[in-house]
């Protein structure tokens, strides 16, 4: 006969625990989601930077620039036909 209040008590405690757990998990979700958002934003940013760096690189290694540098700064030139000797094995 005395079991009923005990069951009620247990259920009440259980309910309270579940509610707290729900709030806790909801909060965790938000936190994790915020972190995910940030990571995604970072990814976009890094991708953007990668593309920019690729463009920068391709400008730096552009054939016209290399050719110009080789000729003007390093004093290089293409060999004349007479200067080429083919060695046959």
């Amino acid at each position: 006969m005395n079991a009923q209040p005990i069951i009620t008590m247990v259920l009440a405690i259980l309910l309270a625990t579940v509610l707290v757990a729900f709030v806790f998990s909801q909060n965790e979700t938000r936190k994790v989601f915020a972190a995910l958002q940030q990571a995604e934003q970072e990814k976009t940013q890094i991708n953007g930077e990668w593309a920019r760096l690729q463009i920068e690189l391709s400008t730096l290694v552009s054939n016209s620039r290399i050719e110009h540098l080789a000729k003007s700064e390093l004093g290089m030139k293409l060999p004349e036909d007479e200067q080429i000797m083919v060695i046959k094995r």
Binding site: T44, N47, G48, A51, R52, Q54, I55, S58
Partner: peptide, 9 residues
Amino acid sequence: GEPLALSTA
């Protein structure tokens, strides 16, 4: 693999 066209955000 040298880029000829790229997209930047």
